[in-house]
Design a protein around this nucleic acid. Structure first.
Length: 539
RNA sequence: GGCUAUAUAGCUUAAUAGGUAAAGCACAGCAUUCAUAACGCUGAAGAUAUAGGUUCAAUUCCUAUUAUAGCUACCA
């Protein structure tokens, strides 16, 4: 039995959960559910990322206390993930005592190692809002291609990056006025110190090839010192004055540290003595982080360095996915295709989205396109026409002629066994993150069964005959096997199937066929999606 | 600008060590009635972004170009 700790990237506490979040959590959830199905011991943790300038500004905009805002969003986020059956064992926010204590512990460690340096830097300052402006809060004319309204760090038009101080006619996006330059002393982390150790971690952990290449590219040159402090006003943890005066921890530090502190918190609440087993430097237990391709820099460079400095173990692997697009466009409010999880559930169900996303996920970091027409076709043809159709066409006989009871023998044990024997193939595909490939195989199974039924023509067999009874029981047993394979993907449908069949869908179901067993009367298990609902999503 | 990826039928994706490019959806015909106009069988059509190179042989390896995505810390 394996012991595994799994995390997702932390949703930010300044807005609702959207389908992009759901993509990542579904990818992790399916993997976690498969591990559990196979009997491994998995803890699945996540948290809201509740610090940073953007949260402070959002709370000012809404005119409420940032603490109030993040706790309100926390409850909302947690509920949304529950609605999509994401099986987190623990979900909290980064704004908690444990995380603060680990932040203190961390800065002490890097300070003792002599890796902190103070440097004076110049930044734009908005005197109307009394706040230092990060590059993203300043817009102006690109110094290279002269395009208007570009961000302080890079130009969307020519793609160049530059120093914010070179921007022509800079304007603060907060006050819409010209900011002025102000200097401030900051703490910088010498991350280069860890370079060799990180390189060795990259070579020895489970990473996709493209991820490995990207990390080694960054690691092949010197990495600049990392500014880990932020000026007031800020919403986060304050750095003790012995290190620097009036500064806060950069949000990414405590966000990453929360992977550790949340587990500590979780263990304390549940009286588990597992913390050292999972985090000690020689831990044999496994640790995986599911993240989007945009935050690889932090998880592939900063995070291993943090763990190294604290003398904790490093991740066994990172699972990096691409971004979610809607109808081939980036999901954004300006594209008018920003879909929150709440809105989705108003018109459509969780399982169908889970199924669609899983059918698109592989071990590559390609973007995933949620094309709504394709979604409709896929759900109706895969789930209804292929998979559910099997039970729908056989249950009629069982209910009408055999009092909803399975026979004592099978009509075709060999055929049944064929599907059971695929269990290792299917589970390995899921465990290796080849979700789309696994679903293709499962659809092939359904095609095979439907074709078999056509071939054997049960409607021509004598009603109430043993032959028909055993035939139907064979098909239902195969349906059970396929349902076990799909259960991590479709939790809602699976629990309906469990109720109907009077069984629990577990890996043990594959040991031997279920015989002489009483089922419930069949009722429709899954409904076709109406194209009208798809249109409503956009209104 | 630099780096790392990606580019295959109308759409979405396969192709495990260079060796006849495969499947689902959509489309057409036939058959069938147990099934949510579902299922089955047959068929047609049609694709390796562009230009070169290496090779007996390239979707696969190399180079360039084009397009797309992410990164290029101090947004998260």
């Amino acid at each position: 039995m394996k012991n595994i700790l799994v995390t997702c990237a932390l949703p930010y506490s300044n807005g609702p959960i959207h389908l992009g979040h759901i993509l990542e959590h579904v990818q992790a959830d399916v993997w976690v559910r498969y591990q559990k199905l196979l009997g491994n011991n998995v803890y699945f943790l996540c948290s809201d990322d509740s610090h940073g300038t953007a949260i402070l500004l959002k709370s000012r905009e809404l005119n409420i206390n940032p603490k109030k805002m993040i706790s309100k969003l926390y409850l909302e986020h947690k509920q949304q993930f529950l609605n999509f059956n994401i099986s987190h064992d623990f979900y909290c926010t980064t704004h908690n005592k444990y995380n603060y204590l680990f932040s203190l512990y961390y800065i002490k460690k890097i300070s003792v190692l002599g890796l902190l340096k103070k440097k004076n830097i110049y930044q734009f300052y908005d005197k109307y809002h009394n706040i230092f402006l990060s590059d993203r809060f300043v817009i102006g004319k690109c110094p290279l291609c002269l395009s208007n309204r570009q961000y302080g760090d890079s130009c969307n038009v020519c793609g160049n990056i530059y120093n914010v101080l070179d921007l022509i006619n800079p304007i603060s996006i907060l006050s819409k006025k010209k900011p002025f330059l102000k200097n401030s002393e900051h703490l910088f982390l010498n991350i280069n110190f860890f370079r060799k150790k990180i390189i060795s971690w990259v070579h020895n952990s489970l990473l996709q090839n493209e991820v490995k290449n990207q990390l080694l590219m960054w690691l092949n040159k010197n990495i600049n010192d990392w500014n880990i402090s932020r000026d007031v006003p800020y919403f986060g943890f304050k750095i003790p004055n012995i290190y620097i005066k009036s500064k806060y921890f950069y949000v990414w530090l405590d966000a990453l540290l929360s992977y550790i502190s949340n587990f500590k918190y979780f263990c304390e609440i549940n009286n588990l003595f597992l913390f050292n087993d999972f985090w000690n430097i020689n831990s044999k237990y496994e640790l995986y982080h599911f993240i989007g391709k945009d935050i690889l820099y932090f998880h592939g460079l900063l995070w291993p360095s943090i763990l190294d400095s604290m003398n904790f173990r490093k991740p066994s692997g990172l699972i990096v996915h691409g971004h979610l697009k809607i109808n081939s466009n980036k999901m954004s409010k300006s594209n008018n295709n920003f879909i929150t999880s709440k809105k989705w559930l108003k018109y459509l169900d969780s399982d169908s989205l889970r199924y669609f996303l899983v059918s698109k996920l592989s071990n590559h970091i390609n973007d995933i396109d949620l094309c709504m027409d394709e979604f409709l076709n896929k759900i109706n043809s895969d789930i209804v026409n292929k998979y559910i159709n099997i039970i729908s066409r056989i249950s009629v006989f069982i209910d009408n002629y055999f009092n909803s009871c399975l026979s004592n023998n099978l009509y075709d044990f060999k055929f049944y066994k064929y599907f059971v024997n695929k269990s290792i193939l299917i589970s390995n595909m899921f465990l290796n993150f080849d979700y789309s490939g696994a679903l293709i195989k499962i659809c092939d199974f359904c095609d095979l069964v439907n074709s078999y039924i056509n071939d054997k023509k049960p409607w021509l067999m004598d009603i109430k005959s043993i032959k028909l009874h055993e035939f139907c029981s064979t098909i239902i047993n195969i349906f059970i096997v396929i349902s076990v394979y799909l259960s991590p993907v479709l939790p809602d449908l699976s629990s309906k199937i469990e109720k109907y069949l009077n069984i629990k869908l577990t890996w043990k179901c594959l040991n031997k066929p279920i015989l002489g067993h009483k089922l419930n009367k069949y009722k429709k298990l899954f409904f076709r999606i109406d194209s009208l609902l798809i249109k409503k999503i956009y209104n």
